[in-house]
Design a protein around this nucleic acid. Structure first.
Length: 374
DNA sequence: CGCAGTCACGGTCTCGGATA
DNA sequence: TATCCGAGACCGTGACTGCG
């Protein structure tokens, strides 16, 4: 069961033995370090750590002998696997397998030049992919090449001078009050609890709404606790399938509580009476995954006869209404579960611009009353 | 029983928001 | 701003239901 290139072998005594390059002798001969274990996976994990550790201590340049494909697989599966979330891993895997490896995979890593990278970027551009997709593919390649350079596996970094045009920042456009009203009228007709109403009056993300249970709502203290989020990622065993994962909210700041106001409380209490599920938004007595909510949402906007928008716009609409009502940014930032006020400021610049215009107008009105001293 | 329509699920790929 | 991460778009499929 030894794997080519890993340097892990099964011994006659039943143990697994892994070898790593500890140093080189004066005549250039490799001095190996050895580790042993009863389980293959255990040895593999420890060996990966030791390989990384000793790569920093080598005095000699340890040029990589494999191809770009070999390095990318090692980088992703060994060096990155435990540092990144499953969803990130699968998105990196996809970009590598679909774009990078078919074009560059067979090249020797140490022979990679900036020209190869340029040709690859041109190739991507000819595929009619959006700038952000090209950006994300090149980012993966760049990260892997940077790591190879850091580890002294290559003499120069072919991505060193690579700069991609920055992604144009999309303007966030919240629903107008008129469109919001139209949508609410459709949503309020729903017999069970509406995800639209929840999003418009709490600013929750779609995954947070999916995972919200009635037990997360404290009707005594009037608080909604955001304790979990649902999302769909590729299956860990069979990457051809996907699965719904229930996890804690994405960051510490996302795990939060939101005050429950009077009207929303009444709405939720009414819906709880007729609910047969543990979940606030349900589908067949279980949770409604984000895709189902999204599907239902599409139907609702068709019914309401408003412009085509994503579910996430409801969150922006909530935030915009807050800003319009003069709610301070620090409070809004907490409500939205943002990690920093800066993020909230960056995201809702447009609404604040109106506030700023109003503020300047107030100051400006003084000017009309000041007379010039003669 | 066969057919058509609706709704939800599943897979794949792309896009872009959020964070450090 | 690079990186990480989640959601959307689109299409095919299957379960379910109503109707003739």
């Amino acid at each position: 069961m030894s794997r080519k290139g890993e340097n892990i072998y099964k011994r006659k005594d039943g143990r697994w033995e892994g070898r790593y390059m500890k140093a080189r002798s004066e005549n250039g001969k490799i001095i190996y370090g050895y580790i042993y274990g009863k389980r293959y996976a255990h040895v593999k994990e420890r060996l990966a750590k030791l390989k990384v550790r000793y790569s920093f201590t080598h005095n000699n340049i340890n040029l990589y002998k494999g191809t770009v494909q070999d390095w990318l697989n090692h980088w992703l599966n060994v060096l990155m696997r435990k540092k990144i979330k499953l969803s990130t891993y699968s998105s990196y895997r996809l970009r590598m397998d679909k774009y990078i490896i078919p074009f560059l995979g067979k090249k020797q890593l140490i022979l990679m030049k900036s020209q190869d990278i340029e040709e690859f970027v041109n190739y991507l551009m000819n595929l009619n992919l959006s700038p952000s997709t090209i950006h994300s593919i090149v980012t993966v390649l760049k990260s892997a090449m940077n790591k190879a350079f850091m580890e002294n596996y290559i003499l120069s970094n072919p991505c060193k001078n690579l700069s991609l045009s920055t992604k144009p920042k999309n303007e966030i456009s919240a629903l107008s009050i008129k469109d919001q009203e139209k949508l609410e009228q459709v949503a309020l007709k729903e017999q069970s609890c509406s995800a639209v109403i929840l999003a418009l009056y709490t600013g929750l993300r779609i995954g947070e709404i999916s995972g919200l249970k009635w037990s997360d709502i404290d009707f005594e203290k009037d608080i909604i606790y955001i304790r979990r989020t649902l999302y769909r990622i590729p299956n860990t065993i069979n990457s051809r399938k996907t699965e719904v994962i229930m996890a804690e909210p994405k960051t510490k700041s996302s795990k939060r509580s939101i005050p429950l106001a009077k009207n929303l409380k009444k709405y939720l209490l009414d819906k709880q009476q007729i609910s047969f599920s543990d979940y606030v938004i349900s589908c067949k007595n279980s949770y409604a995954e984000p895709r189902v909510i999204s599907y239902r949402f599409r139907k609702s906007i068709e019914q309401a006869g408003i412009r085509s928008i994503h579910f996430h716009i409801l969150r922006h609409t909530f935030a915009t209404r807050c800003v319009e009502q003069g709610i301070d940014i620090a409070t809004l930032s907490k409500l939205l579960g943002h990690a920093s006020i800066k993020l909230t400021l960056d995201t809702y610049t447009d609404s604040l611009w109106e506030n700023r215009k109003e503020a300047v107008s107030v100051i400006d009105s003084r000017l009309g009353t000041v007379s010039v001293a003669s």
